[in-house]
Amino acid sequence: MTFHPLGDSALTIDFADESPDRERLLARALSVAGALEGANIPGVIDVTSAYESVAVFFDPARIERDVEEKIRAFVASAGIRVSRKRRRIEIPACYDADFALDLARVEAETNLLVDAIIALHSSSEYTVACIGFVPGFPFLAGLSEKLRVPRLESPRTRVPAGSVAIANAQAGIYPFESPGGWNVIGRTPLRLFDAKAQSPALLHAGDRVRFRRITRQEFEMRVKENSK
């Protein structure tokens, strides 16, 4: 565990040196972030986690001189358990050719047939490593080794909302239309981010996610329901 200033009003706690096991590191980051959020350390205004690190943000108007020591002591103390209750969430995804903008590219890169690609993508269980890039965008760990395809040479200026995509070892979903360079292989009718909802992001770091293949008909039906 190493501490690094993240500017003058935040710090990063990096767990990379604790284990070579990525899943363990993710679990460690999630549990420390959860514990720090509940700890109410004075002057701490936000906590986030990513793959193998946690960031702690301070109120810039009152950074106490010993705040780092307090956080260090808290994280080092025994009270943090690695196990946490994980939510399991199913994401309906339609792999129709109209939505799978880069399926041909993925076929060429992987030497797999479309059905095999879809089967591999929709049979894995993923873990939400973190939410970022744009509000509600999940970085999903757990993509099949066989589906590792580099990012597009030049990113698209407009990736449609709901696009289900893969890049290198990761899978993700674009919550709304935005630029992006991942390989798009399908689309979900779900809304991943709603600024007006009490809990704005559908997915949270640590959630377990599976994709369920749906027909074009079911996709259109779900979209219609959403717009009601």
Binding site: A33, I45, D46, F57, G132, P135, P200, A201, H204
Partner: peptide, 10 residues
């Protein structure tokens, strides 16, 4: 906005 970084909100 504060406390929303974990949802990717800037």
């Amino acid at each position: 906005r504060t406390r929303l970084r974990k949802f990717g909100v800037t």
